[in-house]
Design a protein around this nucleic acid. Structure first.
Lengths: 218, 218
DNA sequence: CCCGATGATTTTGTAGCCAATTTCGTCGTA
DNA sequence: TACGACGAAATTGGCTACAAAATCATCGGG
């Protein structure tokens, strides 16, 4: 673990992989031990993660893994709806025949995963599809922001995939998105993507309700 | 200059104020001297500014003030168009009578500045209006991203205000935005904001053309 | 049982060291 | 003169040690 960038990536990955409990304190010496590096490297990485919104630092109180409340997850997804709508539209304008075939392949893979009820495989293909759409859109600014936003709510995405019947609904929405892109119809692609993410927001909203019910029951 | 946060803010302000030439190297010891702090503080601040897109760091080559090409400024503004459209719509949903009066005041101020041909005052009121709309919208995520994007192109905004006739056009657009918000019409507010920022993008596009003409003439 | 004080833990900030790498200048040669 | 190789200086990367400030936890007293 020589350079600062490696520690940064390792720590970021660990947080995104959920290897720290929600709200857990990140004690510098512990992280040094874990990653086999000096405190210096850790202290260089933490401010960056803070600016990425993954950890929360308070003066003299150290860093904690930031817990994103559902209400904020909804805000984030509202922004993501706009940005991914933009990338979908641009992808529809720029897509080549080869890229269109690739998108169709990924959707095919998603359908197979749903039929086999393999949630993890579905979730993976899902992420790949969105990533491929972004790369076709070639809008660096939007891509950067989407990826940063996605990183902030990896935890929520896990819980979302477990909602019964959600993959089937999600699959149909993705098929619509890809159909519009392949048809080179930017407006339809943007609308389809927004509808898809709107339904994600609605699912998050139902999570918020059940969460508040639980806390009320305590 | 005790804490790292102060150095970070000071350095960020200095960059945003244009106190460094475009692409200038940021030598650590120089910054220490300038801000009267240790190298440690500088070295903590630079990665954060890099993640904010204000500086560009390369291994063993140090940090440089990042120069944003016009093409990227256009991308950034395209994203900002979506985000500010969102805040305008939400502001229209949430605005109180007192806030509506405040917006009207700022527009009045803008009109006065245009009539007096005071570009700096106009630019300032302009920024205040957008900021006030964001605070009324109370969408933390969108606000954070807009402010980060704006920071990346402060330089371009200077040049934009100098286009002859632009303030008058801009003023009318802002009046339309505020009218829609005051009328509590989210769709109209979003449309008006998008139209406004679309015209900003068009102005940036004309800058790009003149820039490429200049380079072609060389 | 509750509250405050004290000590330990943790973080923050500084100073300085050496290694690695880049960059710039100089010298030698074609 | 022009060009390339070599070397020295400058700069960053990474580290350790240390002092200071703040927080946390434990313990004792009321």
């Amino acid at each position: 673990m020589a350079d600062e960038g490696a520690v940064l990536d390792a720590l970021r990955d660990a947080i995104l992989a959920g290897e720290f409990a929600a709200g857990q304190r990140l004690v510098e010496v512990d992280l040094c031990e874990r990653f086999g590096c000096s405190r210096f490297a850790v202290r260089a990485a933490i401010p960056v993660l803070a600016s990425e919104g993954l950890v929360d630092v308070q003066r003299h109180r150290g860093a904690r893994v930031r817990v994103i409340p559902v209400s904020e997850a909804i805000e984030i997804t509202e922004v993501r709806r706009l940005l991914e709508g933009l990338t979908a539209a641009r992808a529809a304008e720029r897509v080549t025949a080869a890229q269109a075939a690739e998108l169709a392949d990924i959707v095919h893979e998603m359908r197979a995963a749903v039929e086999a009820a393999e949630l993890l495989r579905y979730s993976d293909s899902n992420a790949r599809l969105h990533a491929r759409i972004r790369s076709i859109a070639a809008h660096d600014t939007a891509t950067r922001m989407i990826e940063r936003l996605r990183a902030q709510l990896v935890r929520h995405q896990f819980t979302l995939a477990l909602i019964p019947g959600r993959p089937a609904v999600s699959l149909a929405q993705h098929e619509r998105i890809v159909a519009a892109i392949v048809a080179r119809d930017p407006d339809a692609a943007e609308a389809a993507m927004r509808d898809h993410i709107t339904s994600v927001i609605e699912s998050l909203g139902s999570l918020e309700q059940s969460a508040s019910n639980q806390s009320a029951r305590r």
